[in-house]
Design a protein around this nucleic acid. Structure first.
Lengths: 246, 246
DNA sequence: TACTACATCTCGCAT
DNA sequence: ATGCGAGGTGTAGTA
């Protein structure tokens, strides 16, 4: 297929809600929330059925350029050159490719309506502590979890054995400085709104950075080491076999 | 090509550092930092030359499953079933696919060594203010920008017309509560390390949320409205033509 | 729509 | 390796 034949093929596929994958040599301009230019090189270009556009270089995890779903995608052959123009006028975003060569063109209507099931999130952690309050400390009585209050989004909230209010902030990995700041915001807002001064703050995470621990202690808060639930339960480290799941 | 023939084809391509794209119906298990299961459906499977694995559903911006570069990818046909097993033993991460059907298989050695050039970042904002200090306020004298300190990364640091220390934190979009907390951390650390108490804090952003402004003012800090540089300069909103760039 | 915080965040940079 | 913060972050949940 010559370059001039692609616009009709690609636009028809996109209009039918098919997914399109191109392996191509191209250069790329973006303008919108920022501006960027990527010189000529080989990339993977993916146009999804919702008109999301995702472009990858041959290395790395993240796309190098992309456009959100709902983008208007057109392809144009002009003056011997092939362009792919992506427009999102609502967001004022623009992505333009000049395509030098196309190595591979695949298109297909894909059917998928499945939702992923995930365990081990911060929410799961808060739920685990809600159900096993002794993980926080002896005598802890949870009042609420994952609560959107006007004070903010508090992971876990309760009373200690002496009846003092306790705010618990969970982190699924290492707690850092922003995590301490976050806890501090919640505690201060609750103290302010209730007109009290002895609200306790607990940061629950597998570990905590040195600076974060220092700041936490400077502010009179506490750290409790807790792991997210079901972490690596399904696989054995040295076991290659597929686990049973779902 | 029958399912049983894919393992040899795919593994050879991967071993040669080729990029592989599959359109396939599959179900997916992940275990590592969390655990997940995605029931059977059509997806785009991308294996890059650095053995990053990226899997997309037909809709949405983000991959639904993925593995980092350096993952060991193998494909196995067992008991009439085709599996793709991805292992990252260092990170203790595992991704397994059972592939029901393959609609499309593309592979190609891709060549790209280009770096993207981006303008309009937070760093560009700090640089603009460093070069035009009057954007912050009359008489502001910048001392440093983008400075990595032990307590964090201070965007812009200087003296006001009266010789008072000023910490400036930039945000490219709307400044929010974490941005105020961040500024507060920097100001407190500088006051602590210098043994002084009158360090000014300025949050520079196009706009700020209501709660963030209140918290900012409660703490005696200031807001200055500044836009990131060169934002949307290259395109005209109603102009469809490609801008010249680079 | 605006705001808030999570994410298998990823990434770069400095220590 | 760890720590820290940006990101064209994206995404979900809520008011």
């Amino acid at each position: 297929m010559t370059l001039s034949q692609y616009p009709a093929q690609v636009e028809e596929a996109v209009s039918k809600g098919q997914t399109v994958v191109l392996l191509a040599k191209c250069e790329i301009w973006y303008s919108g929330r920022a501006e960027s230019y990527l010189p000529l090189g080989d990339r993977i270009i993916l146009v999804k059925e919702d008109s999301a556009v995702i472009i990858h270089q041959p290395n790395g995890n993240n796309p190098i350029n992309y456009m959100k779903p709902g983008t208007k995608v057109s392809m144009n052959f002009d003056d011997g050159k092939l362009f792919m123009n992506c427009r999102n006028l609502i967001n004022k975003e623009f992505l333009d490719l000049r395509i030098d060569s196309i190595y591979s063109f695949s298109t297909r209507k894909l059917t998928d309506g499945q939702d992923i099931q995930i365990e081990g999130t911060e929410k799961d952690m808060a739920e685990m502590m809600y159900n096993k309050p002794e993980l926080v400390e002896k005598g802890f009585r949870p009042l609420s979890r994952e609560e959107h209050t006007k004070y903010g989004f508090i992971d876990l909230f309760g009373l200690d054995r002496e009846g003092k209010l306790v705010v618990v902030e969970c982190k699924r990995y290492r707690a850092d400085l922003p995590a301490v700041s976050q806890l501090r915001r919640y505690v201060e807002k609750i103290e302010e709104s209730k007109g009290i001064t002895h609200v306790r703050g607990i940061l629950a995470a597998p570990k905590i950075t040195e600076n974060a621990l220092k700041m936490l202690q400077d502010w009179g808060f506490e750290f409790v080491s807790i792991n997210p639930p079901r972490y690596l339960e399904k696989y054995d480290r040295d076991q290659k076999s597929l686990a049973h799941f779902g």
